[in-house]
Amino acid sequence: MSERKNWQEVELGAQLPAATSLGYKTGGWRVLRPIFDPSACTHCMICVTYCPDMAIPVAKSEQGVAGKGGRVYKGVVRLATNLDYCKGCGICAHECPSKAITMMREEEAEQASCKL
């Protein structure tokens, strides 16, 4: 954590501005990493809405993205998992109806990504 404030500097009544926890990265808790296979995804949003850590970002895509069955999925699409915050719970992998997510041990995932 950065320099801590002195008593003369702390906020009145410990009141905080919004959304400061974005500065607290929980990705380090992860033991298993969700590996997302875009080619198997139908962008159904099950994993997004279930993710308790808001770690699966979404975007609106007019031209669409390629997914399961080589189809192009338009509208709200899921992007790559945000590993800064993903805690590796595995809910997304367990609930994905298209089996587009698999959980891999963090060290293996690291090694795999190094090789790439």
Binding site: S21, L22, G23, T26, W29, P52
Partner: peptide
């Protein structure tokens, strides 16, 4: 569900990452 996801995790998100719930907590 797309529209809901856009609200829960899109640009107007009201509840953000970086909380310390146990991994996998549904809250």
């Amino acid at each position: 569900l797309q529209e809901i996801a856009w609200k829960t995790d899109g640009p107007d998100i009201r509840f953000v990452s970086g909380h310390r719930m146990c991994s996998g907590c549904g809250i």
